[in-house]
């Protein structure tokens, strides 16, 4: 356990020793700021009975943040270590492959969640501005953060997998972005796709990230969604482990 924690600490610490970490935090802050401005405009213009968190997801800023930041956060996980050679130094110490994979994942997850903390301040500020206590309902905010965590874990596992495949951070980032945006677009507003066969509609509904987030932001955390994200995360971490292990294959 202590080896695992040592690795996680190193992973997290690395973000704050490079420009990338601060850049990501700044970018998320900026986009969150834009979404706040956008939200205020909407709340002011219309009488809306939806929770503010739901509006937040309708602005698409959330997806912009997740789609753009997950590649940047995860690209260094394995690729940077492979290109500098520290991967060899790491893998010749008595640490297990799973320990390495899980520590990398936990590190990226930790940093991802850290970048989302300012959102709490955004929501709080909104409540202060509007004076509407109902806009900031703790269970709904909790469900929203559960949603952020679940979506993040899937995207971070995409990123860890992509990073384990290559020694180039750029390629890792592009692969992660492709996987992320591919999944997102497949399920984007699935109602609009009238040309699809009848059987495809429920499948698309099931994997529609936007649908899931709408539910989360209304305060609905359903088992179906949780299973979707957790199984996806586990699957991609399993693939990552296979890649890490593959150096010992003949």
């Amino acid at each position: 356990m202590s080896v695992f924690l040592t690795l996680v600490r190193r992973e997290l610490g690395a973000y704050f020793k490079s420009f990338t970490g601060y850049l990501v935090i700044a970018a998320v802050l900026l986009l969150n700021g834009f979404s706040l401005v956008d939200l205020i405009e909407r709340v002011r213009g219309l009488a809306i009975d939806a929770p503010v968190t739901e509006l937040f997801y309708q602005t698409d800023y959330f997806w912009l943040i997740v789609l753009l930041c997950s590649p940047v956060i995860t690209m260094r996980a394995f690729a940077a270590e492979k290109s500098t050679g520290t991967y060899e130094a790491l893998m010749t110490t008595p640490v297990g492959d799973w320990q390495v994979v899980l520590a990398k994942f936990t590190g990226t997850m930790g940093f991802y969640l850290l970048t989302w903390l300012p959102l709490l301040a955004v929501l709080f500020a909104l409540r202060q501005i509007t004076g509407e206590a109902a806009l900031f309902d703790p269970p709904v905010v909790l469900a929203t953060f559960i949603g952020i965590t679940l979506v993040g874990s899937l995207f971070m596992s995409f990123g860890c997998f992509a990073s384990s495949l290559t020694r180039s951070e750029i390629i890792a980032a592009m692969l992660t972005f492709l996987m992320g945006i591919g999944l997102w677009m497949v399920g984007y507003r699935p109602d609009a796709s009238g040309m699809l066969p009848a059987w495809a509609q429920p499948v698309l509904d099931h994997i529609s990230l936007t649908r899931h987030m709408e539910d989360f932001s209304r305060g609905m955390v359903t088992g179906r969604h949780v299973v979707f994200y957790l199984s996806g995360t586990v699957f991609f971490l399993f693939l990552t482990h296979r890649v890490v292990e593959s150096r010992r294959w003949n």
Binding site: R10, K17, S18, T84, T86, A89
Partner: peptide, 9 residues
């Protein structure tokens, strides 16, 4: 290892 890889940060 060859080239002595270290975490330079």
């Amino acid at each position: 290892p060859e080239n002595n890889p270290l975490h330079l940060d």
